[in-house]
Design a protein around this nucleic acid. Structure first.
Lengths: 163, 163
DNA sequence: CATAACGACCGAATTCCATTCAGCACCGCC
DNA sequence: GGCGGTGCTGAATGGAATTCGGTCGTTATG
């Protein structure tokens, strides 16, 4: 992926509704060329979709928390993500290195709802939980800055010293 | 906020590029009515924006981590979010309850880049860090299910009995 | 009760944008 | 040089976004 595609991705990450006309202006390409590139980025899965960013306070889910989970029976098969997928209060599930096995990001309406959710998590996945409540969120969903790289996942620095 | 608005928000959270025509069909309203509602939701800040969801592996940022930070000098003014805002590798910053004061979500290109970022974080905010590396992400960015409620942050159950 | 004011809706008109298509230029390859 | 592939442009078309005028129902007010 090269420069222009990276630029397109950055712009769309910042404004997912930017028109092809504007993207064309920003990239210096024609409308049909950017259109083609965006479609390709979508097809390749570089752009996985588009979403509205919503204010969770405003929609009745003012309480955010991170829930770290650890299997109670370490020998049992680890299928926690699937077991928890039906809980729509769980916004994200990350498998992590460290003492615990997953970190979940959850959004609920109230402390009581959180308590209830934790019970469901424990029951559904047979895990113990450790919860960190979010007090406020200074920022979130910031778009990354895509620095020069070539294909997928390149080192951004490369020390070579001599040529 | 009532039923139809909640429905609109849910739909847009799932597909930020859904057309007004489709939203109209889904909600049973006319195109101009949904248009009006969406504009109002945007103006009120319920919908804070739109973003493309990108595959970080594909854009050269395959390494995600959670960095918990704790001030080295507890007496110093706590302005870590502003001090860290310039680091574009930081996607989100949450103030949290518990032992540590903030949890950052970061995306970098490589372990070396993570090491470098951690140093910048410590230097910029005068904090100690504890890092949890993400191994994989079963899911992320799931749209919440907006259950009945009226204004912002209502109890999710209400018993009334008679009409 | 009349009526004014407001809010939400609809349908039509207009403008703008997404999408497609036919060409053209630039490779790399045989 | 001919050929196929890739990426671009500009024009054409269809569909969507946005605006506007008008209707209806509700509420406040005299």
């Amino acid at each position: 992926m090269e420069e222009i595609d990276r630029r397109i991705v950055t712009l769309l990450a910042r404004d997912g509704r930017m028109s092809f006309t504007d993207l064309a202006r920003e990239t210096g390409l024609s409308v049909s060329a950017v259109h083609q590139r965006v479609r390709r980025l979508e097809k390749r899965g570089v752009v996985r979709g588009y979403a509205a960013i919503i204010d969770h306070d405003a929609v009745g889910l003012p309480l955010t928390a991170f829930v770290s989970i650890k299997p109670i029976d370490p020998a049992a098969p680890d299928d926690a993500p699937e077991r928890l997928a039906h809980l729509s209060a769980i916004e994200a599930c990350h498998s992590v290195a460290g003492d615990e096995s997953y970190i979940l990001k959850v959004r609920v309406a109230s402390p009581v709802a959180l308590e209830d959710l934790l019970q469901q998590i424990r029951a559904s996945a047979n895990v113990s939980t450790r919860t960190t409540v979010v007090l406020s969120t200074p920022y979130e969903h910031r778009a990354p800055e895509l620095a020069p790289s070539e294909e997928a996942g390149e080192p951004e620095t490369r020390q070579d010293g001599i040529a």
